[in-house]
């Protein structure tokens, strides 16, 4: 059974249809990269998967269970699906360690001690044990993003959604974050990420999804899609058109 199953997802903002019938399945342990032009609906799709956007139509199944739109359903959904944002969104009044501890303590009612130990382990995982006591504004962008990843991981999600997690970073900080994501992929974490890092996508993911105008225009293994795109839109997107011409 697939871990995540999306069927016929529709979503509009006002009169503007942004997702037009998305079907997608994600197996446990799979790493999926979504690419596509700006405005093609990648973020909206990712945000729908963890309930930050309410979909107009379609179904979302996590581990075979249908997710409704009630608050309680959303909470169950979010316990399984973590998300990392382009803008980090760390809580500025909490230290790195407290950022990671907060959700386990208030949502899962972990003791302060247990949450602290968990936070230490997660921060070690992203290579930031020595920054535990720092506040977000005392950390570089790359470090903040790694704390944000640790914060999501601490909830032990079954799927992690990553929306352009390196786009807000200075170029020299991109690699430290990608290294963490690569490590997660290697450990078997199920990942759905939107990215503009083509090389990284090619190298790390099992499945590439090309979104175009609110639809999944093409999907397949990265090797396939990159070497032999079937549609002109994808070809154009990955710049093959030019190279061939």
């Amino acid at each position: 059974m697939p871990l995540v199953e999306l069927a016929a997802i529709w979503k509009s903002f006002g009169q503007n249809p942004v997702l037009k019938g998305i079907d997608l399945t994600v197996e446990e342990g799979q790493v999926i990269a979504m690419i596509g032009r700006s405005g093609s609906g990648k973020s909206t799709l990712l945000r729908s998967i963890n309930g930050l956007e309410r979909i107009d139509d379609g179904t979302i199944l996590i581990d075979g269970e249908k997710i409704g739109s009630k608050d309680a359903d959303l909470r169950t959904l979010r316990l399984q699906v973590g998300m990392v944002f382009q803008q980090f969104n760390l809580f500025p009044h909490l230290s790195a360690r407290e950022n990671v501890m907060l959700a386990p303590m208030v949502v899962k009612k972990a003791s302060r001690k247990a949450a602290g130990a968990l936070a230490d382990a997660m921060l070690a995982k992203v290579g930031l044990s020595d920054r535990a006591g720092h506040y977000p504004d005392q950390l570089s962008g790359g470090q903040q993003q790694r704390v944000a990843i640790a914060r999501s991981l601490a909830m032990e999600p079954r799927v992690l959604l990553c929306d352009e997690v390196t786009s807000a970073l200075d170029p020299e900080l991109v690699n430290e974050v990608l290294a963490v994501v690569r490590q997660l992929a290697k450990e078997g974490m199920t990942l759905i990420m939107v990215t503009h890092e083509m090389r990284f996508a090619r190298e790390v993911c099992d499945k590439l999804v090309f979104m175009h105008q609110g639809r999944i225009h093409e999907e397949g293994s990265p090797a396939e899609l990159f070497s032999a795109p079937k549609t002109p839109e994808l070809a154009q997107f990955i710049g093959l058109v030019e190279a061939a011409g």
Binding site: R78, F85, F91, P92, H93, V106
Partner: peptide
Amino acid sequence: PKGQIEAAEALAMSRLQIFRHVILGPAMR
């Protein structure tokens, strides 16, 4: 910032938990 609230939502926190732990401190400050 709205992003902080969304981050908290993505961590499965409830409305009240978000208010109490994420919003209130910085707002009061």
